[in-house]
Amino acid sequence: MTPPLYEVRDLVCSYQGKKVLGIERLDIAADGPTAFVGHNGSGKSTLFRALAFLLKPESGSLTFLGRPTEGHEELLRRDVTMLLQDPYLLRRSVFENVAYGLRARGERRGIEDRVAEVLEMVGLSADFAGREWYQLSGGESRRVTLASRLVLRTKALLLDEPTANVDEENGFLIAEAVKNAWLRWGVVPLVASHDLPWLDEVTDRRVHMKRGRIVEAEVETDFLL
């Protein structure tokens, strides 16, 4: 049996001493996409930042594919990528943005083809590659930032609200892209979103969060209503 993608144990994260995340136990499977849902401020982004090794947890332990992660964050950041909730485009062309992570990994050959491939996956024609970062609409820039993560084919792909600012048609395209990342390349997508019908397209596996904790689905709906 393959180990889980992540095993989270007694994880505590705080901002300026204020505890916002406390997860006793959470296993995230490596055999397909998982969705994370919960109210604003329930801790989805904070959990994702910890899983992407951007935020150092205050305490607790984290394993990645069965191996402890502490002290190996820099190496592990090459196996995990994250699309931030409020993504940022580098002040460069679209091509340079998407190629950035490949270049950082020392890849030299086949970059053009791989960039074109992921741009197509997010519904952007090849001539977008030549555009500058300031020549894009909000939804287009978001899709470029998604493409720049997809292209890396990392083991885990954390997407924090990937369909904000994106219209229905392109939302559908993104759902396809996320599923294909799993089916074609074995990239495990973890997706946080408030768009439940859209999430249904991607996966029926759900993790519910509330006030920085993991809750059972039934419990959550009880509290919500």
């Binding site: 950041r77 090459r78 993504p87 940022y88 992570g101 950082a104 990994r105 890396l152």
Partner: peptide, 11 residues
């Protein structure tokens, strides 16, 4: 967001 962006891209 620049720093986290670069980190997520593997810099």
């Amino acid at each position: 967001r620049l720093r986290s962006t670069l980190l997520t891209l593997g810099a």
